[in-house]
Design a protein around this nucleic acid. Sequence first.
DNA 1: TCTAAGATGGGT
DNA 2: CCCATCTTAGAA
Length: 206
Amino acid sequence: MNDLSTYAKLPESFYKRPKVVAVARDLLGKYLITNVEGAITVGKIVETEAYCGRNDKACHASRGMTKRTTTMYETGGVAYIYLCYGVHHLFNVVTNEEGLADAVLIRALEPVHNIEEMQRRRKNVPYTRLTAGPGTLSQALGINTSLNGYSLTSEKIWIAEKNRQQSFVIDSDRRVGVDYAGEDALLPWRFFISGNTFVSVPKRIQ
DNA sequence: TCTAAGATGGGT
DNA sequence: CCCATCTTAGAA
């Protein structure tokens, strides 16, 4: 890492705030960093989705605590990682106080540091597809379910900000792949940096 | 126990 | 459009 000192790790208080939608917006432009398999990789967060444990049928925790969702009920500032379709490891940021199961799904990153390692892990797919989706970004950063429950103030996986953050425009839209949630599928709880090329494209409009 | 479905992604 | 791949959740 050439200049890790320019990154400031976000404190626990950032995650424990009560409004998961606000945290989802504020995570845009921040940096997700992993130190696993002997490599540090960094990506800028460019797309997120908010999930609320109460009154949101799209949220895994909407019908109470289960074996899978126990992590979501932990205190804000830990990772909730689960296996999707038996293939993809999806990474979420748990927010709010313990017992309130809110989380933010990280849907896309812009590669920032150690792109060579990301390309190795991603089997040399084109640069533009390195981290443009929730499953692919986990592969690029070496994230899997062994990190489920890890603190995001740990030394293995964390989120940081830079002293000077460039300004950007935030767009919002309905969340991807949650049609089963009825009217909650219409909530505009997907947030992304306007115009960023790494924002994932929902299949239905490709 | 059994089984359908899933917060995806890559190929045809 | 199809399918990989496997855990989970809810039913039986």
